[in-house]
Design a protein around this nucleic acid. Structure first.
Length: 414
DNA sequence: TCTGGGGTCCTAGGACCC
DNA sequence: TCTGGGGTCCTAGGACCC
């Protein structure tokens, strides 16, 4: 049997811990990063039932002494990177999941640094001493179990799962600790009396698949027996790039959605061009006032990355939604996503094609003009910053519901 | 004064092809 | 009496994760 060499390292209540580090008077107090929405809560706040994603008003109700702090987003990025760099010191096999979380496989480096649990303890000590942050680590034979280990270890702990005791450890735990079990799946399982991972493991595969679908049933059943074949993946390629904007409540009209879609297209397109990617499928999402949402998609014959092209297609799709839903007076969110991404080298030959002057075909006159305009804008932004230039009214009408820095942070995870 | 922003993957039905 | 069967691509919706 393989040894337990997979580490899952997860910084505890990361944003909140950074804020407490930056302002020691906040230490030991219930704090929330954010405002309208809680982005992160300290453990003191979590004790009151406050959690990330919760509306700020609800959080205040639960915890009257909750202290809201604005985010120091550049510090999050810096400290998250620094913590992950410590992992890099012990193995090249590091898979970063997000700003504050990563897997690492130390199978090949134990002869240099000692057994996995010693490496894990060293990492925890160094992150604490060098950065001043608490980090929890799970050590196990599989990624899934290592991740569960770090969750169980929180806050500021370490759990090593011996390969001989895997199922004994796993089967007493509640199903919602499993990767892929959210509120809906948890409720479906509970209706069949399945509360623990052990109960899930004893459920016949067929009835499980009837309950939650083929793929999910198969996956969860395998995980419940700790059959997790996933290896560490050090380079992830993005499959889509998107942007969204919550609007509160705005009339579903051209004057509202046009400038917003321009802004979203501009964000996505400049990120795509920055990485030399283009995409063939444009998807829009429109959320109505009551939070019901619809999506509409269009797949093109050739990939695109021009701001104006993405914006025009998105507008067309949103007009279609409006025409199909004439009674929806207000919308609360607009989103665009570009998928079927390909590296630009793969579409170079398209540039040389002639044909009708169609903006969606990169080889045509309009397409070329748009690439030039985008290229000029990208250059100005490189020198003077993103807000230095924009498409027409977009510059003035940018909604600022979330700090731009937080948005940039999310983008970096792409 | 309802509920942010960035992603991944799965399902199900229809079109289309051979 | 009916109308194969497999594969791919696309669209729309939904669950989940950080």
């Amino acid at each position: 049997m393989d040894a337990a060499t997979i580490l899952h390292a997860d910084l505890d209540a990361f944003y909140a811990s950074v804020e407490q580090l930056l302002d020691p008077s906040l230490f030991g107090k219930p704090i929330a990063v954010g405002g309208g929405v809680v982005l992160a809560a300290s453990y003191e706040a979590k004790a009151f039932g406050v959690y990330g994603g919760m509306p700020g008003r609800r959080a205040r109700e639960l915890c009257p002494h909750l202290i809201f702090v604005g985010g120091h987003f550049r510090e999050y990025q810096r400290l998250g990177d620094a913590a992950m760099a410590i992992l890099d010191d012990y193995t090249p096999l590091v898979e970063r999941i997000s700003i504050d979380e990563a897997f690492a496989d130390v199978a090949g480096t134990a002869h240099l640094f000692g057994p996995p649990e010693v490496i894990a303890a060293t990492i925890r000590r160094r992150v604490r001493e060098e950065l001043g942050l608490p980090i929890s680590v799970g050590v196990a034979r599989t990624k899934h179990l290592a991740k569960i280990g770090s969750q169980v270890a929180k806050p500021d702990g370490m759990v090593v799962i011996d390969p001989a005791n895997e199922l004994a450890f796993l089967h007493d735990l509640p199903v919602e600790l499993m990767w892929g079990v959210g509120p809906v799946t948890k409720a479906k399982l509970a209706e069949s009396g399945i509360i623990t991972i052990g109960q899930l493991a004893q459920t016949p595969g067929r009835s499980l698949e009837r309950l939650i679908g083929h793929a999910a049933g198969e996956k969860l059943f395998a995980l419940a027996w700790n059959r997790d074949p996933r290896a560490i993946v050090t380079d992830h390629r993005a499959r889509s790039a998107g942007a969204q904007s919550a609007l509160g409540r705005k009339p579903f009209r051209e004057q509202v959605f046009r400038p917003t879609l321009r802004l979203l297209a501009d964000r996505i397109a400049s990120r795509l061009r920055d990485k030399s990617w283009s995409g063939r499928t444009i998807t829009v999402r429109v959320r109505f006032a009551d939070m019901r949402a619809v999506t509409r998609a269009m797949t093109l014959g050739a990939p695109v990355s021009a701001t104006t092209t993405i914006a025009e297609i998105a507008e067309e799709l949103v007009r279609g939604v409006r025409d199909e839903h004439p009674h929806e007076r207000d919308i609360s969110l607009l989103a665009i996503s570009v998928s079927h991404l390909v590296p630009d080298q793969a579409m170079q030959f398209e540039f040389s094609l002639g044909g009708p002057d169609d903006a969606r075909r990169p080889g045509t006159r309009t397409g070329a003009a748009r690439r030039q305009a985008d290229g000029a804008m990208d250059k100005v932004r490189t020198r003077f910053g993103w807000d230095a230039i924009g498409y027409g009214s977009v510059v003035l009408e940018a909604p600022k519901s979330v700090p731009d820095a937080f948005r940039e942070l999310a983008e970096k995870q792409l």
